[in-house]
Design a protein around this nucleic acid. Sequence first.
DNA 1: CAGTATCCAGCTGGATACTG
DNA 2: CAGTATCCAGCTGGATACTG
Lengths: 125, 125
Amino acid sequence: MEVSNQVNGLRTRYPDGVFPAKCPSRVVLDHVTSKWGVLILVALSEGPQRWGELRRRAEGISEKMLAQTLKTLERDGFVDRHPEPVIPPRVDYSLTERGHELAALLLPLVSWVAEHAEEIVSDEH
Amino acid sequence: MEVSNQVNGLRTRYPDGVFPAKCPSRVVLDHVTSKWGVLILVALSEGPQRWGELRRRAEGISEKMLAQTLKTLERDGFVDRHPEPVIPPRVDYSLTERGHELAALLLPLVSWVAEHAEEIVSDEH
DNA sequence: CAGTATCCAGCTGGATACTG
DNA sequence: CAGTATCCAGCTGGATACTG
């Protein structure tokens, strides 16, 4: 699918440029652009990872928010959960195909921000 | 600047994939991926717009949040404010060059979400 | 029109303790 | 290890009234 098609899709769906308050787009957009959602998706774009590793990578995330974020992303079909029946428990998380599509669009954004963030923040006396 | 360079920048800056809790990247990322920040940036990518029009487009936004979001985006150097000395007042907002760079990365993401949101939400019984 | 100022309800999310 | 359960402080952000 080409980018131009995707952008046309935006205009087709919202011809007047208004985003209705309760449209599905806003709901899903809030999930994927949430503070922790972005970081988890970017982390998982490097490959399957365990709960503990995700917790370490998204520095500052609480257990509650990690559980909640993973559940939302799983529910939206971006993330797969693979529990292994061993003791102690081991659970791997990975991106679904849909999750990979999304991450491919998220990565350039996050990279751009990572490259420009210092300059942006330092301008703010 | 190529996308591959940008993604390499991510790895260079965060080689172990950890996003430190208080790094500038996280701060700026929170601004641009905030609930209203995304919508305002996308709306402005269609051209300069007045306060009232932005308020109408980002359906559901309060005056307080519109003012706050615009100030943050202006402070980050993504948005320019052009007040005209007329009565009644007229103020136009537009993207800076930096804002256009960012919007170019945001649009494919928002478009993808707009195209898939219905399917995603409908899967959630 | 394009905001600012104030108030405050309620949700977010952190901290802590606990578990199969 | 990978979570769940509970509590609650404090921030977010909506509503309302007002202004140059």
